[in-house]
């Protein structure tokens, strides 16, 4: 007798993705699908995706999906969740979408503790539009709009730390930053995604997983070099960890 030990998630379509080699969107999409299966929420799952490479996911995931105007995914998800609380809604947003043009929507959805799940892909750059500076671009990092490297002295500002910023608010329920550089971190990321969805199922509120990922194409690196860069540079600026976990606080209070 053969025993099935692994199956492709039904949460993604059976086709080849157009994401660049070494891009981690595919890994994250797969994990979301697996989590939805494990939690038994696939037929209640709704994806509100941002604009940018994160907006390509509609072509690969297999469940209900809608596309918000650039940056507005948290506002859109607010409307969707309020009007249909049975849906399990997550936003899928890049750093430009969530932390630049959509900063207000992100902050206020968190502040209201909207009962939604936010998957935030932080690769420090605008991918689809061709490698411009993002709010999360590291200092000194070259982009097409910071050709000499990001320099605050030139009025280009500093990297923005969304978990830390949202952690200043009373509202959010769960904030964690993870990465996908190796199997151990992929597993940790999946556990964080699962927790973020479980919180929504339990009606707990705003849960965000910030995933530090790579953009080999726009970083101008091979996929393996990009992974090294995450470990050597990105994670120094964006330390991994749980920033907010009200469920822990609730347990301790008991």
């Amino acid at each position: 007798m053969m025993k099935k030990v692994y199956a492709r998630t039904t949460g993604i379509q059976d086709k080849v993705s157009g994401f660049c080699p070494g891009c981690m969107h595919g890994t994250v999409h797969k994990m979301i699908g697996e989590v939805a299966e494990e939690l038994g929420i696939m037929d209640r799952l709704v994806r509100a995706e941002g604009v940018g490479c994160c907006g390509l996911g509609q072509n690969y995931v297999s469940y209900d999906t809608t596309i918000s105007p650039h940056g507005r995914a948290c506002a859109m998800a607010t409307g969707m969740k309020r009007s249909n609380p049975d849906s399990i809604i997550y936003t899928y947003q890049g750093d430009g979408d969530l932390a630049s043009i959509g900063l207000a929507e992100t902050m206020h959805a968190a502040n209201r503790n909207e009962n939604i799940t936010v998957i935030f892909i932080n690769n420090g750059i605008y991918g689809m539009t061709g490698g411009q500076m993002a709010p999360t671009t590291l200092l000194g990092m070259k982009s097409t709009t910071t050709p000499e490297g990001r320099d605050p002295e030139k009025g280009q500002g500093y990297p923005m730390h969304m978990c830390e910023i949202l952690n200043q608010l009373t509202g959010p329920y769960y904030l964690e930053r993870t990465t996908c550089t190796d199997p151990a971190h992929v597993r940790k990321t999946k556990a964080a995604i699962k927790k973020a969805f479980q919180n929504q199922i339990d009606g707990k509120g705003f849960s965000m997983v910030e995933i530090v990922t790579s953009c080999p194409t726009n970083w101008g690196m091979t996929p393996l070099k990009a992974v090294d860069f995450i470990n050597s540079d990105m994670l120094k600026e964006y330390p991994l960890g749980v920033f907010r976990d009200r469920s822990k606080e609730e347990k301790e209070a008991e």
Partner: peptide, 18 residues
């Protein structure tokens, strides 16, 4: 909403649920 921009997109989100 925190702005008109957010409000119209909340509307958009809600309307999509029927």
């Amino acid at each position: 909403g925190e702005s008109e921009v957010a409000s119209v997109n909340m509307l958009y989100g809600s309307a999509q649920t029927g």
